[in-house]
Design a binder for these strands. Structure first.
Ligand SMILES: Nc1ncnc2c1ncn2[C@@H]1O[C@H](COP(=O)(O)OP(=O)(O)O)[C@@H](O)[C@H]1O
Length: 853
DNA sequence: ACTCTGCGAAGAGGA
């Protein structure tokens, strides 16, 4: 076999493979020129030498999974070869080729053979070919090719090993039983998992004896206290519970693999090969972009006119489009039974179709070059969201890393496990620190904000900022960053969501502050693209390294901190926005990169999303921000002055949630009213609802018998939808701009119902999605209404955090629609209705007012 | 009893 003797041993792996691919192809071409193609003799060990001729390199770094065996892997190169069989005739077969750059020892030989054997299994599944029973290993170090012939007994042995491993994993997560330690200090002392391994061993009852590691064990876990171990076990258990819900979900995906389309999948699709979308992919930024359209084009383009709001099921057309979004990782399969042909990322999606970017050409495994395009266009495709479980791995890793024997981690443990209060050095505030004088003299911030920033500047371990709705959290953080920079400190800015990170960075940008944003372009806001490396294009490795060393401010999501550019990067301060919405294990990651941290959030708004009810109940919904705020209420810097709600709207959350701690930032804000143009005479109820002097309205639907309806696990309320449609029409009629009107509701199905009927300039969302946003005029649809309603306390409406979010989104006008009868069973909502009544905003509409019911 | 954001990628071998 021809080879490249100049392969760099430490070079980029894909380059090595590309190079070899060229070599393989060159070899083929050279042989073409010769009189006959014989190939070379490859040593198959006990099976002797065989003539092997590579006829095609079909793929490199090919991802293959076989759900049937519970295995997946990435095959270095997938070859079509001609090999002389035992009977002397030459046959064409498919084989995996693995590159190995290391030395050959008996240990590695066994491992390499095992790997190749498993790859033959994966390839049989992927290529729908049963007879894949051989593979190749190529050793770059010695320029030697070895053949591997699959023995049935080896295969069975490997599958059994795989099953043992899988059962160990299950045992670990369900009964907290870990496999015994290797008890081999020589091997373990240089293992990179030594820390995690010994810590877990200790946590689950192991000791120096059972570890078999002697002193090495105690050196790694000796520092752990009983409280540390309890904390680790508790959170590890919560992560297990949460991870289980995801595993169930991925099983469901596998079950519905063919035919049926679900909400997280697009199907049936065909490849769009019309102008601008070549069948062999549009090359863009080194990625291949393919465009798929619905097989029945008409369905994709269907307009949502003349919708009957009483039959929401008819509206589900195209709803799959909303569940996948730009930047999502997806898996492409065919409906003809070939799962996971390729994986990639959505780069645009609309009613008309979806574009997916792949790192390689799209190709059906085994398809011949001559018919590739035809094969692709003939297929019916499906696209599923790729549920990567790496979130749980990250959580677990963050958690165990907290207990590593490092000074910085021990300080963090004191705060997080031991609940050490924030400590401040008040001396800083009277010093010559330029940051301090900047904050003292800055005119654009109020006193609360100033105090909060001073706390940040004088904090020794951490500080907490409670930013109630509309209180200028972002402005506070921007000035804090400015001040910290004056001191020459480096800052990590983070939050769970991309939008929260970008929101902050955009404000920094307007202040002319330099920063780097780590994250994929597809999910980063346009306005910060220039701060991402991928957008700057041709920067060399050295440029990037230099930039990372020089830049003081880095923005990244909590889960993005393991990006290669951030390894070994440390910061003076970590500022975490929306910290009340981040689960503790996730928030640990960024905190471990900094010597001091600032949590900004509002634990009176929605807690982190936890899938598993059991995990939630056992405490996973308690964010670190909430944990520390409840432990040290006196140390929180509270921003009380808000610049969003007029006084009538503010009164609601002040009474129900915030214990009157909110104040309006100015008289203008307190008295703000919507402006209505004069228009035709209106009905009495509409007139009252729109009255600009009544900032809060609650429309009680009890007289309409406007009951909730259930369909496919969703709850919706058509009557409330009709009322809201009427109100939005009247608002638009009176020249309230559509983009200053919003509608929110607890339930997705109600949101999509309303979305379909109201003017498209009006934003409609669930309450959860709307956290952090605001509008001049906001309408809330509570949905729940039934005669025999049990208390909705156990429903998502029973969560007071969600109610608080709903009540604090409107600036000038808040219109709520709901059934007093049903909602009053939730104590907080009962109080709300009483308060609105006291303000004179409660309105009971009847069938007479409203004919559409 | 219905709320939904994020996340890439490999392998050998030195302390
Ligand atoms: N000290 C202040 N004085 C006047 N207006 C302010 C002040 N702080 C913030 N604001 C205003 O309040 C609004 C919300 O500010 P922002 O910092 O984005 O708040 P949040 O992050 O809490 O939503 C902005 O329009 C901003 O101009």
């Amino acid at each position: 076999m021809a080879t490249n003797s100049k392969v760099e041993r430490h070079g980029d792996r894909s380059k090595v493979l590309e190079g070899s691919r060229v070599d393989l192809e060159r070899e083929r071409d050279e042989e073409d020129e010769g009189q006959e193609r014989r190939g070379s003799v490859v040593d198959f060990g006990n099976n002797g030498g065989k003539q092997v001729l590579v006829t095609e390199v079909m793929d490199i770094e090919e991802m293959a999974w076989a759900p049937k065996y519970g295995l997946k892997g990435i095959i270095d190169a997938s070859l079509r070869i001609r090999m002389v069989s035992d009977f002397g005739d030459s046959q064409e077969t498919i084989v995996p080729l693995e590159f190995k750059s290391g030395k050959i020892t008996s240990q590695t030989t066994t491992e390499h053979h095992a790997q190749v054997i498993l790859y033959t299994l994966l390839m049989s599944e992927r290529y729908l070919v049963k007879e894949i029973d051989a593979g190749l290993l190529y050793y770059l170090f010695t320029d030697e090719t070895r053949g591997v012939k699959v023995q049935r007994s080896d295969l069975i042995g490997l599958i059994m090993r795989r099953n043992e491993l899988a059962s160990d994993l299950v045992k670990a997560s369900t009964s907290r039983l870990l496999p015994p330690m290797l008890k081999n200090p020589m091997v373990c002392k240089s293992c990179r998992h030594l820390n995690s391994c010994t810590i877990y061993h200790k946590a689950y009852g192991g000791d120096q004896d059972t570890s078999g590691l002697g002193d090495l064990f105690d050196r790694n876990v000796g520092h752990l206290t009983t409280a540390d171990i309890e904390f680790l076990k508790h959170w590890d258990h919560l992560i297990d519970l949460e991870a289980k819900t995801c595993r169930v979900a991925s099983k469901e995906m596998r079950a519905c693999r063919l035919g049926e389309s679900s909400s997280s999948c697009l199907s049936p699709l065909v490849l769009d090969v019309t102008t601008g979308y070549p069948a062999d992919g549009l090359l863009k930024n080194d990625r291949y972009v393919y465009h798929f359209i619905h097989q029945n084009g008409a369905r994709c383009n269907r307009e949502a006119n003349n919708v009957d709001i009483r039959q929401p099921s008819k509206l589900q057309v195209g709803s799959f489009i909303s569940s996948l979004k730009c930047g999502d990782f997806v898996i492409i399969s065919t409906e003809s039974g070939r799962p996971a042909i390729a994986n990639g990322m959505i780069c645009s999606i609309s009613q008309r179709g979806v574009s997916v970017s792949l790192s390689k050409l799209l190709r059906l495994p085994g398809s011949y070059c001559t018919s590739e395009t035809a094969d692709l266009t003939r297929e019916v495709w499906r696209i599923d969201k790729d549920e990567i479980a790496s979130v749980y791995a990250t959580m677990r890793f963050n958690l165990v890393e907290l207990f590593f024997p490092r000074l910085q981690n021990s300080l963090l443990r004191k705060v997080i496990v031991g609940l050490e209060p924030p400590r401040f050095d008040s001396g800083v505030l009277v010093s010559q620190d330029p940051a301090v004088s900047y904050v003292r003299l800055e005119k654009s911030i109020n006193d609360d904000q100033r105090r909060a920033i001073q706390k940040i500047l004088s904090a020794k371990n951490y500080s907490l900022i409670l930013g109630m709705p509309g209180t200028g959290k972002t402005s506070t953080m921007v000035h804090a960053v400015k001040a910290l920079l004056m001191r020459g400190q480096s800052i990590l800015l983070t939050s769970y969501t991309n939008s929260a990170v970008d929101n902050l960075l955009i404000k920094l940008k307007t202040q002319g502050i330099d920063f780097v944003r780590i994250g994929r372009l597809e999910v980063v806001h346009n306005d910060v693209h220039q701060h991402c490396f991928s957008a700057t294009g041709a920067s060399s490795l050295d440029d990037i390294r230099q930039r990372m060393e020089q830049v003081r401010v880095v923005g990244v999501t909590c889960l993005g901190i393991y990006h290669p550019l951030l390894v070994n990067k440390k910061f003076d301060v970590c500022i975490m926005d929306e910290a009340g919405q981040i689960t503790l294990p996730v928030s640990l990651g960024p905190l471990m990169l900094a010597s001091m941290f600032v949590l900004v959030g509002d634990h009176y708004q929605l807690p982190p999303l936890v899938q598993s009810p059991e995990a939630r109940e056992k405490g996973m919904k308690v964010s670190l921000f909430c944990r520390l705020s409840e432990a040290h209420p006196q140390a929180i810097a509270t921003l009380q002055c808000q610049y969003r709600m007029c006084s009538g709207i503010m009164e609601l959350s002040n009474l129900l949630i915030y214990g009157n701690r909110l104040r309006c930032g100015s008289p203008e804000i307190a008295d703000a009213k919507i402006k209505l143009s004069l228009a035709e005479p209106i009905t009495a109820w509409i007139k009252e609802v729109l009255d600009p002097n009544k900032s809060v309205i609650f429309i009680n639907t009890d007289n309409l018998l406007a009951f909730e309806m259930r369909e496919n696990d969703g709850i919706h309320n058509p009557s409330e939808c009709s009322i809201i449609l009427e109100i939005t029409r009247e608002l638009l009629e009176r020249e309230v701009p559509g983009d200053e009107i919003g509608v929110i509701t607890p339930y997705n199905s109600q949101a999509s119902l309303i979305q379909r009927v109201v003017n498209s300039s009006i934003e409609v969302h669930t309450i959860d999605k709307y956290q952090g946003r605001d509008k001049d005029c906001l309408i809330v649809s509570f949905v729940r209404a039934s005669e025999n309603a049990k208390a909705c306390n156990s429903s998502i409406l029973g969560d007071w955090h969600r109610i608080n979010v709903a009540l604090t989104r409107a600036k000038k006008k808040l219109i709520m629609v709901g059934s007093c009868g049903t909602l009053s069973r939730v104590p907080l909502l009962k109080l709300l209705i009483e308060k609105v009544n006291e303000q004179g905003g409660l309105l009971h509409i009847s069938k007479k007012d409203f004919g559409a019911a």
